[in-house]
Simulated scan of single mutants.
Amino acid sequence: MSCRKTALPDFAMSWHGHSSRSGVTRNPYDLSRDPGGSSSGTAAAVAVGLAMAGVGTDTGGSIRVLAFFCGLVGIRPTVGLVSRHGVTALVREQDSPGPLARSVADAATVLEAMTGWDPDDPVTALANLPPHRLTAQDPLPPEALKRARIGVLRQVCATVPGDDPDVARVVEEGLTAMREAGASLIDVGIPRLSDLLHQTFMYLRQSRRDINHSLTRSGAPFTDIAEIVATGELRPTDANPTATAT
């Protein structure tokens, strides 16, 4: 298996495919559109068929946004399932590497290969605690959804009036397919969801600390992202020191 490096936004700090180093990554389905971020090049390469699958990192959407924009299957694993060793941190407690692929089976195969204990990331020990975990491919048989109970959080689903009708249609088709496969769908709501999301938005509180830690560990010529901002070479929308201050 061969591996290739692809483009991404500076320090993986964006949900868009813009980089001060490599320029703009475009969506292969429509070159006037964005593939999403942060692993923009990976998603574009997989979507266009240059690779069977790729690996992204997700702190606040950087696998899920790409899967949505590029028509891929993306899995953001629970932190601790996949080692973060070697990943440049953005918010250490939320960073999670995971697969991007064109099918559920391919994504599950890659996730299975990535999962497991790594002494360089002790949090991965959680994935090996009893009871013994299932493999990533165990839930794939056609009858897997029979008697499953799936919560539908419509506060974050595009199924309410005013949303994009095409997106709403695709969401509803997915819900219908799960129902027809035997799942019980239960509408759920979370009071004050917007407030809770804002309160747990760790980028503004912790990113500078975690990025600086990664810079120091890697032996980079800079040990503070503020020094990189000061060079004037960082993409302008990422160059606000207060946005990564702690």
Results as ranks from 00 to 15, higher is better:
Ser2Val: 14
Cys3Lys: 13
Ser14Tyr: 11
Ser14Arg: 14
His16Ile: 15
Ser19Asp: 08
Ser20Ala: 15
Val24Lys: 03
Thr25Ala: 02
Asn27Lys: 05
Asp34Trp: 02
Gly37Cys: 03
Thr42Lys: 07
Ala45Glu: 03
Ala47Glu: 05
Val48Cys: 09
Leu50Ser: 04
Ala53Cys: 08
Asp58Glu: 14
Ser62Pro: 06
Ala67Asp: 02
Ala67Val: 00
Gly71Glu: 01
Leu72Phe: 03
Val73Met: 09
Gly74Pro: 00
Arg76Lys: 12
Pro77Asp: 08
Thr78Asn: 06
Val79Lys: 08
Leu81Val: 10
Val82Ser: 03
Ser83Leu: 13
Arg84Tyr: 11
Leu90Gln: 10
Ser96His: 12
Leu100Pro: 00
Asp106Val: 01
Asp106Met: 01
Ala113Ile: 05
Thr115Asn: 00
Thr115Ile: 00
Pro119Ser: 08
Asp120Asn: 09
Pro122Asn: 06
Pro122Ile: 03
Val123Ala: 08
Ala127Lys: 05
Pro130Gly: 04
Pro131Gly: 03
Arg133Asp: 03
Arg133Ala: 08
Thr135Gln: 01
Ala136His: 04
Pro139Trp: 10
Pro141Lys: 13
Pro141Gln: 14
Glu143Ser: 12
Leu145Asp: 09
Arg149His: 11
Arg149Gly: 03
Arg154Cys: 05
Gln155Ala: 04
Ala158His: 05
Asp163Arg: 08
Asp163Cys: 12
Val170Ile: 12
Glu172Met: 14
Ala177Met: 15
Ala183Ile: 07
Ile186Asp: 02
Ile186Gly: 01
Arg192His: 07
Ser194Val: 11
Thr200Trp: 04
Phe201Leu: 14
Tyr203Thr: 12
Leu204Ser: 13
Leu204Gly: 14
Ser207Ile: 03
Arg209Gly: 04
Arg209Ser: 03
Asp210Leu: 08
His213Gly: 09
Thr216Met: 15
Arg217Thr: 14
Arg217Val: 13
Ser218His: 12
Gly219Phe: 10
Thr223Ile: 08
Glu227His: 10
Ile228Cys: 06
Gly232Val: 12
Asp238Cys: 15
Asp238Val: 15
Ala239Gln: 08
Asn240Thr: 11
Asn240Phe: 10
Ala245Cys: 09
